[in-house]
Structure formats: structure tokens, C-alpha cells
């Protein structure tokens, strides 16, 4: 179980670096959803299912929805660098 936790923490750090570094904002929203997902598994392994449930519901559903609504109102940084 220790090795699984170690690998999940490494994945979480990689996703957090992706979230900060890249320029496209939709990429950052998807990566932050992944960070919240792996945080939920880590809470679950530490025997705290109620915190894991709150983290999963807020991080998976509400945060992505609210960020996408905000992205719709403002703009996604697609003009400077061509993504397609």
C-alpha cells in the first residue's frame, strides 16, 4: 500500500505542474480535475471516507462546472499560440 501511495503522489505532483505551467486554460481545468481525483483516492487510502466524498463531489462536479462557466464568460488563451 505504501508503494501505491508513493506512485499516486508522484502522479499528483506531475498533474499540478501541468496545471501551473501551460498556457491554455482548458488544459488547466482538466488537469485540476485530475489533481482533485487523486487527492480523493489518497484521502480514501488514509481511512477518511467522508473527506474523500466531499473532495470528490466538489472537485469533480462543482469546480469543473464553475470554471467552465467562468471560461465561457471570459476567454481562453487560444489567440497567442495555435492549439488545433
Amino acid at each position: 500500500m505504501f508503494i501505491i501511495s508513493l506512485l499516486l503522489i508522484i502522479f499528483m505532483i506531475v498533474l499540478a505542474i501541468i496545471t501551473i505551467e501551460f498556457n491554455d486554460l482548458l488544459k488547466a481545468v482538466i488537469s485540476s480535475g485530475g489533481v482533485s481525483l487523486i487527492a480523493s483516492i489518497l484521502f480514501y487510502i488514509l481511512h477518511a471516507p467522508d473527506v474523500a466524498m466531499a473532495e470528490a463531489s466538489i472537485g469533480a462536479g462543482l469546480t469543473i462546472g464553475i470554471f467552465v462557466f467562468a471560461l465561457r464568460r471570459t476567454r481562453r488563451w487560444e489567440e497567442e499560440e495555435e492549439d488545433e
Binding site: 482548458l26 480523493s40 480514501y44 470528490a56 469533480a60
Partner: peptide, 22 residues
């Protein structure tokens, strides 16, 4: 502990569909 999986299976659907609609 299985309730967490139930909540996650329902709520991850909302995030994916909202990004797809965007």
C-alpha cells in the same frame, strides 16, 4: 466506503458533459 464510488460515478459525468458542451 463504497458510497464514495457511488457519488463519484454520478458527479464525474456532470464535469465531462459540461466541458464537452463548452
Amino acid at each position: 466506503y463504497i458510497d464514495v464510488a457511488l457519488v463519484y460515478a454520478i458527479l464525474s459525468y456532470i464535469g465531462e458533459v459540461s466541458i464537452a458542451r463548452y
